[in-house]
Amino acid sequence: MTAMVKAEGIHKSFGAVQVLKGIDLEVQTGEVFCLIGPSGSGKSTFLRCINHLEKINAGRLYVDGELVGYRQKGDKLYELKDSEVALKRRDIGMVFQRFNLFPHMTAAENVMEAPVQVKGVSRAQARERARELLEKVGLGDKAGNYPSQLSGGQQQRVAIARALAMEPKLMLFDEPTSALDPELVGDVLDVMRDLAESGMTMVVVTHEMGFAREVGDSLVFMDGGVVVESGNPRDVLTNPQEERTQSFLSKVL
């Protein structure tokens, strides 16, 4: 089994503030990898480095064996052109805390947009695929609705369908359920569970410890820009070794 994501000593600062202080981890192909940690610990920042929405300052980050954002020739690094970065992002789906659906497009149009614009798929084909994907996330009857006409949970499921439309090999989830009313969380988690069962490699930043325990294959606890503890979710969540993990879990569980 190869690593889908491999991080070696990732550092990232915003100005003088160091947010990531040397992250090392590996996400195996086909696994569900959960990231937990207190607010401000750098979880979102790390996730955004994986698809190069943020540039790292030091370290090496590989997705599917290829360096993210750079090309290595000899011992020199060359920055990739925007178009090359965009090409690599096609293979990485991302789901945001605040959905970020395109409000001027219907659910179906949201799902169709990238395949048509980026991959050059015909509109008819893309529409057919969008219908299938919306069906899959349980929104077959909402294809014509604008995001403002959908509940938060429905919007997030459209966002997942939108990311899946590009047929990614890796999905990133940044707290996909934390902007949702409690009764809507379940629907989104069900969709994610199905996706995990289908063998998708997923990196999930979450506060849903139940989801991490049931669906997760690996779990990392981050705090202050470093990995504090990692391992099997059931072990880490029930029997944390580090004191910082223990105090964090005692607050959220």
Binding site: N51, A86, I92, N100, A114, Q117, V118
Partner: peptide, 27 residues
């Protein structure tokens, strides 16, 4: 236009120009 829109578009692999034309300008 919310920055999240540009981000979502970039994350889908859309170029700067396409993002501007298809996502940002219509909004």
């Amino acid at each position: 236009v919310d920055e999240g829109q540009t981000e979502a578009s970039h994350a889908l692999g859309m170029s700067h120009a396409k993002t501007l034309r298809r996502i940002v300008i219509p909004q």
